[in-house]
Amino acid sequence: MSDKRQRARVQGSWAKQMPKQSNPTAGRSMVPNNNQSKDANTVSGSWGFGNQKTSKSFEFHQPTKQARDVPPEKAIEKMGDYEISHGPSGVSQLRLRPGFIPQEEADWMFSKLLAELPWSQKTNYRQGEEYEEPRLTCWYGELPYTYARSTMPAKAEWHPLLVTLRKAVEQMSGCSFNSLLCNLYRDGHDSIGWHSDDEASLGDKPSIASLSLGDTRIFSLRKQPLPEDNGDYTYVERIRVPLSHGTLLLMEGATQDDWQHQVAKEYHDRGPRINLTFRTIHPEPQGYRPGTKMRFTTKQP
């Protein structure tokens, strides 16, 4: 059989005939001759890359920094006592009591406090610049309260309804409180950024009781990062607690040392919410400069 007919059978009658090579050695460069290297790691080809060396073995190197997973956010929604962490400063505890104030009573209390408390917008200072808090507040207590380099003056005369609520919270918690910070979140755009209630005037491992009236808002917590993370909060534990109308939340133990909390902005319809945070204020230590921290934290508007 002629070469032409054989090529048509093998490649198909549509295949083009290969052009004749002027160089008699062309097309045979894959066949080693006596002048080619005998190195087993050398491969030569006619496609123009020259001699290519391949590695004899693959060596695996362990990454110097292990990959870490971002922990999923946990939710606390049911009534109960929760130990959210053990260390480094001790045991951090939350006590959640939904429905602490019954619905009808909570409705009446919310309307009365919204109308009768002396709400105002506090001006704070950060890095030498002033800003207005994105919420309204008022303060009750025999001692002033300083945070974010701004002081709220003492106000010893409490609203009668607040006195009643303080007694109820003290009876339930077993704690005593001499001060109260009231917060009014007018809508979903009002908020408070990440912070810890760790001012020196609050003392060591303070207990803080938070009573919510009005629309539900998400109370978020995040663990302080490890020293080796250099302030990176990417891989810390996080908790979300929906605080509904009439709910009481107590933060105890090392919660202010080892955790931060916030109420973030919510850009969908949210009605007003009143948050009453009962706490105990101590006289400021001698030599203490108002606005400084007893422990490191970050304060944001």
Rank of each mutant, 00 (worst) to 15 (best):
R95H: 12
S44V: 14
Y145I: 02
I274S: 05
L221P: 05
S55Q: 08
T146R: 00
S29Y: 05
N35A: 14
E130F: 05
R9T: 09
R238S: 12
T234K: 14
T234Q: 13
K20R: 11
L202A: 04
V31D: 01
K265I: 06
R126Y: 14
V91R: 03
S37D: 11
A40E: 13
D190A: 15
M251D: 03
R240G: 08
V43R: 07
T277C: 00
Q300C: 02
P102M: 10
P242K: 04
T255S: 15
G90V: 06
E104S: 15
L250F: 02
R279A: 07
R166T: 11
H261D: 00
P134W: 02
I239S: 04
G291K: 03
K205V: 03
L184K: 10
E170W: 06
L249Y: 05
P225E: 06
T164Y: 00
G128T: 01
T42N: 08
E77M: 09
T247Q: 00
E132K: 14
N33Y: 02
Y131W: 12
K38Y: 04
S44G: 10
S22H: 10
G48K: 03
P88V: 13
E130L: 03
P225Q: 11
P102L: 10
S46I: 05
F219Y: 15
L161E: 14
N230Q: 13
E284L: 13
M294L: 13
P227E: 13
P32K: 14
R28F: 10
P72A: 11
D204E: 11
T151Q: 09
D81K: 10
W259C: 06
L181C: 07
F110K: 06
F177W: 01
T247C: 14
I76L: 15
S212C: 15
I84N: 01
K293M: 12
T216G: 00
M172R: 11
H282A: 02
I281T: 14
D81S: 11
P63C: 08
D198R: 07
S111L: 14
